[in-house]
Design a protein around this nucleic acid. Structure first.
Lengths: 125, 125, 125, 125
DNA sequence: GTGGTCTAGACCACG
DNA sequence: GTGGTCTAGACCACT
């Protein structure tokens, strides 16, 4: 499993794992039905405690992204609509800040949009 | 001072103040040379602790957005390049996540860009 | 044997089997003296491990619902009073919770009783 | 805080706490806006680890029953519709079993309904 | 071998 | 003093 964790980040480790899986799903690196590494396995790979991985998985389970089962391990859900209930408020507020900073740095709307657009593509290949 | 604080938000209050001022600056509500309310005054207005406002101001001072002076109070800096040193890493990571969720929700690139573009305009008036 | 197993359920498979037989008995689908499929047979039908079926049968035997005999196979007991020793505590606690949630959802006592009553009938046909 | 925990129960402690609060809310013992004991406090009162209480609170937060905030402690939510998203499937399946056992024990529908009805009232005073 | 539950104890962020 | 995060390690239930 190919998750890169930045231990110096102020983003909690469990949140980095969560995002890595969501982004991997959006990129197509991970697909519905895929079996994820067990909490113990991923914890060992990353070099962290299994509870931290467990927390990330639990959050993803709550968002309908995966299912955890003592019997079969952790699987990416076949759910057609993962993240449906996800509250975008928090993340939109981050976007407001990003736009404000971009303006203060003197970026034009066109350049800003171009950057975003590029990010979208990068997330695609 | 027109800052709206959401006490239920998971965003720390000092961070809400900081963002409010940055966004106000980008929108043009606040301009270089403007005198900000004193720490004590703003704390009283919002109904929070002195230290909380002080922390927000200190962060803005570190970003070159304002200057605190015991004699003259807090002034928005004439600095041409505020936020220059601001670490975009954190916020870009939020953008990556936003894009991934947008994709999972089935949004097209065009619609996504349109939303962002609208946000930019809204931040302008 | 007509047991439907939900492999995604968080209810253990052995418990689903056990409940299926108890409910079948209450509905009259199964009667005293009936011969049940052998452990091996049912395991094969469902596509699960022998031990899982065996565990379900053992529990039912402990509840006086069936008798296991190497020579005659597993038979529904003629016992007049199956489940006599069954500890209702657990299930009554579920009922307490159900009532509390029904109230929080704004259901009236009458509607709640009506639902329960209907469930009783459905379990009868 | 008046929660009675049965350490011998097979119901997890965190689940007993969760139910205690839901039932307390339905009975009116707890009201919107009430401040709950801190996780540490309740853990100490019960004589368990704070993480166990924390887990119960987190589940209730996910169901919209309470809010946890580092700044203000844990408060019963003003949410008009707690438990709205709660999946009743699990609990209804318990009810099916309860009905089957009641039948096997020879209870009449009328007696069964009477018991349920009494439980509803008991939950009310 | 998997996740589930629980304990114990540490340090941090916020106000 | 509150909850948030993380670690470490135990035992259990299920297949």
């Amino acid at each position: 499993m190919f998750l890169e964790i930045d231990f110096k980040s102020d983003l909690p480790i469990y949140e980095q794992i969560r995002r890595g899986i969501i982004i991997g799903l959006a990129r197509g690196d991970i697909k519905a039905g895929d079996k994820l590494p067990s909490v113990r396995e991923m914890a060992e790979n990353i070099g962290i405690n299994l509870h931290t991985v467990n927390k990330a998985y639990k959050l993803l389970e709550a968002d309908g992204v995966l299912t955890m089962d003592r019997r079969y391990g952790s699987l990416i859900s076949e759910n057609q609509n993962p993240m449906a209930a996800y509250n975008l408020g928090k993340i939109e507020s981050e976007l407001d800040l990003l736009i404000a900073i971009a303006k203060l740095k003197g970026l034009s709307r066109e350049d800003f949009i171009k950057n975003i657009s590029k990010k979208w593509e990068d997330n695609h290949d």
